[in-house]
Amino acid sequence: MTSPALPTEASGGWRALARAYAGSALALGGLALLLLIVAAALAAPWIAPQNPYDLATLDIMDSRLPPGSPSADGTLTYLLGTDGQGRDMLSAILHGLRISVAVGFSATLLALALGMSLGLVAGYAGGRVDAFVMRAVDIQMSFPAILTAMILLALFGQGTDKIVIALVASQWAYYARTTRGAALVEGRREYIEAARLLGLSTPRILFRHLLPNCLPPLIVVAALQVAAAIALEATLSFLGLGLPVTEPSLGLLIANGFQYLYSGRYWMSVFPGVALLLTIVALNLVADRLREILNPRLQPQ
């Protein structure tokens, strides 16, 4: 099978991209922070000082201890304090981070897959299909994401799968619009015409030839949307609509600590909040840099 030459990023392209990315120290710092956070989230069960959801390990004598306190049995120092049930905040945050990051990334990947497919089909097919998909995108985007997600959670109830669905439903439209725009531009290029003349099947043209060339803007949108998804999940969980208490993400940890804020026990809400904040800022820094180096209009010289 002879494929027409594609103007896709070759392996050398990725290296050039990495070099361009490294041009900003701030963006490199953001990437390092992001990798650290993701690594900590993945390794949470092994690096956390305590299993925060094994009730047997919790000691009610240790509840509401400020940061740096030793545990009652002297085996452990609570670096970030404990919550109302004597749970080590550092361990709770690491596990919460794991849940938040997992939900944020999986929702983004699913929304990306769904939105990308719809956008690709709309941009390639045109006509009525295009009009229908774009109409749906318009309606979806005219509604605040938080409202869509709230209504869906109200219908489905709580649960990790439910919140992922709600996040996907409130975010797919961004990808669909971005992909369609790119597909419309790329679809007119000669190499697509050549692929069509070679008699390649439509799915093959779409996914092997058209898609790789629509990727740069999608990567930027996805990077921004991971941050948005994590923030939205935290907000919904904080409101008690997101994840159940058995799977406390950062948002739920912050909500649980909220009541103690008034009595000056700041650590139960503030530390999970700082973890959330660092995650979002790191993602935004990375996304910002990606936008700079992938935007053809801002191409670095």
Partner: peptide, 23 residues
């Protein structure tokens, strides 16, 4: 303004309460 974009509303709310009401 970039910070204002990335901070979740509910978190800022908590910080406002902590600073201006509690502290």
């Amino acid at each position: 303004s970039i910070l204002g974009f990335s901070l979740p509303t509910f978190w800022v709310g908590l910080m406002l309460i902590m600073l201006f009401s509690v502290h």
